[in-house]
Design a protein around this nucleic acid. Structure first.
Length: 529
DNA sequence: AAAAAAT
């Protein structure tokens, strides 16, 4: 009876789902045999051309649940110029690039034209791909609409439309854009719609744009994976207190720590913490939305490839990003929205591995911690005593009653001197003079420990300089020049700008992109198909 | 209290 169905489900393999031989062979080559619940539930219907409403978090194998059937269905027919056959909408550039990687990986036996339309990079290459006729078009909404308005793109040939991470698009205010785009595509299309949650606005959207969808639901991740050890870490609330807490934590975890993502709530904090960590010789990179696109891709690639051990990031990296082997997640700030906590810590403990997450909490974070504990339904253990044992740094208390202008030098600890040094002056200068100045800052820093520097692995130092340089090309100050100004003293090997960065790292690595085995264990148990 | 996305 019910045990029979369980057995039948467990025995299910990809070859049972109706995928084409070409697709199956790519899946097998990637080392997968068993579909995840969302894949097993969605693929057969998607192959039949039905609309699918998939309710699933990232990390459930969701991407493959639309990539594989789309590849199969694309085997018939050909793309025409400026008329893409399929369209996949993603909320962030990194996610869009990641989906493209999936199409490349599982479409290796197909001859498909894939175009990635995202902001922050030049139009030329994107235009060329559209002109050639794209079988698969992956886009963030803004750039897609931009291309359309320039007349480079006709959406009335789209046969399959995928809307991914719909609830996140809602958070980001993309819903009007999504509606516009949906209205441009003939309703004879097939629509595959994915969302982790179903708030009323999203339900409305599905009622408007889906036709008799098959609903496939995988239970929510909010119950927090059991393979991730979670701890709260008390800290004073001043930035230097928190940075010191973080450094000590990282050092204490050193033996177990392969690599870590460190989340901050704000972009400025990402930048500050990143610079601070570099000064303390941590092998860190940074990732947030104000960095130029090349730097974003570079940082992510370097972190994935193990060239950077730490990645300081905003919530742009919280959801969906698939880096298979992250050992630690640190929340430098307690996330304001409890769901973000679940997404952030879900960057570790992937592909059935174990992971550790530490959340630095100050007295003013109490209510956010409470909200998180309510959401995940458990109390998070304190790492080394709770906040009642916090010693406020000398001359300060934790009460946030002082304004920003309050003197803050009084009680600083010895260890902090590095942290607060000449940063402001330095960054102002860098902003005016561009990148070459950043390397001199690095040189300056390294001077005090010449001996150490000499011993240090050269490539590591080069990577760090590269990192500091990239992080300095923040979009706000230089993105526009970036597109047309290779004349700045750029010593990096000349980039072939006609190809987006992600193609390069994709060719020279075969990092596993998460898939069937990329499902948290707790989900495997409760998932219903 | 934020971040994300077109310029």
């Amino acid at each position: 009876m019910s045990s029979d169905t369980t057995i039948a489900q467990e025995a299910l393999t990809f070859s049972d789902l109706g995928l084409s031989p070409k697709v199956l062979s790519a899946v097998t080559d990637a080392g997968y045999t068993q579909p995840t619940p969302i894949q097993a539930g969605a693929i057969p219907h998607a192959l039949l051309g039905k609309d699918v409403l998939g309710i699933a978090q990232t990390g459930t194998g969701k991407t493959a649940s639309f990539v594989l059937p789309m590849l199969t269905r694309l085997e018939k027919g050909r793309a025409r110029a400026r008329m893409p056959r399929t369209l996949i909408l993603e909320p962030t550039r990194e996610l869009a690039a990641q989906v493209e990687e999936n199409f490349v990986k599982y479409g290796k036996n197909h001859k498909l034209n894939i175009a990635l339309l995202i902001g922050g990079v030049s139009f030329d290459e994107q235009d060329k791909k559209l002109e050639r006729g794209a079988d698969v078009l992956i886009a963030t909404p803004g750039r897609l609409l931009d291309h359309r308005e320039r007349g480079k793109l006709l959406l009335n040939g789209v046969e399959i439309l995928v809307i991914d991470e719909a609830d996140r698009m809602l958070d980001m205010g993309f819903i009007p854009d999504i509606e516009r785009i949906c209205e441009m595509i003939p309703f004879t299309r097939q629509t595959l719609f994915f969302s982790a949650t179903m708030p009323p606005e999203i339900t409305k959207l599905t009622e408007k744009f889906l036709h008799a969808p098959v609903r496939v639901e995988v239970s929510k991740a909010a119950s927090a994976a059991t393979n991730i050890i979670q701890r709260l870490v008390k800290s004073g609330s001043k930035p230097w207190d928190k940075r010191e807490t973080l450094r000590n934590l990282i050092k204490a975890e050193d033996a177990e720590l392969k690599n870590a993502i460190i989340f901050c709530n704000r972009k400025v904090e990402v930048s500050e913490l990143f610079r601070s960590l570099l000064k303390y010789d941590f092998d860190a990179g940074a990732l947030h939305g104000d960095m130029d696109q090349r730097a974003r891709m570079q940082m992510l690639a370097n972190f994935r490839d193990g060239k950077l051990r730490y990645l300081v990031a905003s919530d742009v990296a919280a959801r969906g990003l698939d880096i298979p082997d992250v050992s630690h997640v640190f929340n430098y700030d307690v996330p304001i929205h409890a769901e973000d906590y679940v997404h952030r810590i879900g960057r570790t403990g992937r592909a059935g591995r174990s992971g550790k997450s530490f959340t630095i909490a100050t007295k003013s974070d109490t209510k956010y911690v409470d909200a998180i504990e309510r959401l995940i339904g458990t109390k998070i253990e304190w790492h080394d005593g709770d906040l009642s044992t916090v010693v406020a740094s000398e001359g300060e208390d934790d009460a946030p009653r002082r304004g920003k202008g309050a003197p803050r030098r009084a009680g600083r600890k010895d260890d902090d001197r590095k942290d607060r040094g000449e940063r402001k002056k330095g960054s102002e200068r860098r902003a005016r003079h561009g990148e070459e100045d950043a390397s001199s800052v690095v040189a300056q820093q390294e001077q005090p420990d010449v001996a150490e520097a000499a011993v240090a692995d050269i490539s590591e130092r080069r990577a760090r300089k590269e990192a500091i340089r990239s992080e300095n090309t923040e979009r706000k100050s230089s993105d526009r020049n970036e597109q047309r100004a290779p004349e700045r003293g750029d010593t990096r090997p000349q980039r072939d700008n006609s190809r987006p960065a992600r193609h390069r790292h994709q060719e020279d690595n075969d990092t596993t992109v998460g898939f069937g085995d990329d499902m948290p264990a707790f989900m495997r148990i409760v998932a219903k198909v």
